[in-house]
Nucleic acid binder design. Structure first.
Lengths: 271, 271
DNA sequence: TAGTGGTCTAGACCACAAA
DNA sequence: TTGTGGTCTAGACCACTAA
């Protein structure tokens, strides 16, 4: 029954975005609409998921047993279990036979599976995050970045370079390159205190839903070393990431230089 | 219906290992045993999965339609779909409504999601892999490794250190630490040419089905630099991994030092 | 039109945890 | 003993693809 955890299927996902942020949130949609063309399981998925992400159900809380969900939403057990399976695969809940189903405690592990903001990432690691804008401006796209963003070289990019701090100590340097055409005027914002992702979503209706990244180890250049307060030629964890919008269009190219003495990545593999 | 893709559940996994290597392989088990205590879906999963990993079904091949699987294995559609969902979540197959279900083409991206042998990894990257054993022997478990393997410090470990080559050029150094109790005599094997994982599975019935790893950047020590043919204090991509058997018991602790000039990791994230 | 996968129902019996 | 999740069945109707 279960759909891939990656992406709900068979739910007209090929249709172009309907006016930014409609059919979601606002009226929190806590009931299933049987006239909707959305599958029941998907509606229920959104409802339960919202209960968790909105914090209504806290980590460790037991969520209503299947029997109650069946009654409350008038769907079959199969449908309820399909939804719970999706949430289990996402790592949002876990089940214990004979005991119940519980909201999972977020783990750091998600860092290598989900797109996580610097702020979120640091909080999960127990640091207090802060940022400082080092430079920003419009530039023509260099060859290599243009390729990764699937645009013409020379097209206008918004470039934002930030120093990221954790507990007031340098953690990383981030260079963002945004296809300016999609977010004209984006550099007006104050990205020392406000997440760039939030601005993209709120101001431009762009949600970064997918990303590809390459992870490398490099040596710190003198400039990076100085900015990060480490000796030159220290080891850095270096990530290059291309992020895609809900339309599956490359929007941002990101370079992150992490201090290797403070930052590592964690993930889980399957056989 | 679907279980987590991570690990089949509700299948007596808490029970201690049954005499190494029973209930698997040997007779390739292409029929469902209704007297078995293993769930039907799990048996069918093993059967279909084997068809793919043994190469009987090739990438791009259409696998039998659900209706045929129902008939052939005498199970309900729900059960068949549960199995297919597991395989979809693993990325081994994909479905196309109205067309059929097909064996997926393996992608390099899997490197950060699936456990991949050095051999496989290098072939995917277009290199010809080779290995050289640098040292091997039995040692008492040091504190830090014992913790990660959830055993007592001092328990006997089989240690194997190998130089890994790609196109005859050093690529990485691997230090394996195996809980010797589970694989007595494992060091007799020739692991310059034979995969350690294969020996574990064939000789000891141990399949490494899950792993947790941490990824770091470090500087090469003089010894590592010499072995890897790079200047001292070069950047290395450093991975520490704990691998778990099908009983969810930690079996192997692994340290890999990759030449950063030759090796990087790739993965995809979701929003 | 025939065959495929996508969604959904209303049951059943079981294993396990906790009281 | 009760309530939970785990497994399984035998249907149904739909949407999509390809002939």
């Amino acid at each position: 029954m279960l759909s891939s955890s990656r992406q709900p299927k068979g739910v007209g996902w090929t249709s172009p975005l309907k006016s930014e942020a409609s059919w979601r949130c606002e009226a929190p949609m806590d009931q299933i609409d049987r006239t909707s063309r959305l599958p029941l399981y998907y509606q229920l998925y959104e409802i339960l998921r919202a209960n968790i992400t909105r914090g209504e159900w806290q980590p460790g809380d037991m969520i209503p047993p299947e029997s109650e969900l069946i009654e409350r939403y008038r769907v079959s057990r199969t449908t309820v279990r399909q939804v719970l399976d999706m949430l289990v695969n996402e790592g949002l809940i876990y089940r214990q036979r004979g005991r119940g189903t519980f909201v999972a405690h977020p783990t750091v592990e998600q860092a290598l599976v989900r797109i996580v903001s610097f702020t979120e990432d640091m909080r999960q690691r127990g640091f207090e995050p802060a940022s400082k804008v080092l430079s920003s401006g419009l530039i023509p796209a260099p060859q290599d970045i243009a390729e990764k963003l699937q645009i013409e070289p020379g097209e206008e990019l918004a470039r934002l370079e930030r120093l990221r701090l954790a507990d007031d100590e340098p953690m990383s340097i981030e260079e963002s390159y945004l296809v300016h055409r999609y977010c004209l005027g984006v550099l007006q914002g104050d990205y020392a205190s406000n997440p760039l992702r939030q601005a993209l979503e709120r101001e431009y209706g762009i949600r970064l839903v997918r990303a590809k990244q390459v992870i490398r180890a490099i040596l710190a250049t003198p400039r990076l070393a100085r900015l990060l307060s480490i000796p030159p030629r220290s080891a850095l964890l270096f990530i290059e990431r291309v992020s895609f919008s809900q339309q599956n269009v490359p929007v941002e190219f990101l370079r992150i230089y992490y201090r290797a003495d403070r930052y590592s990545l964690y993930n889980e593999l399957q056989g």
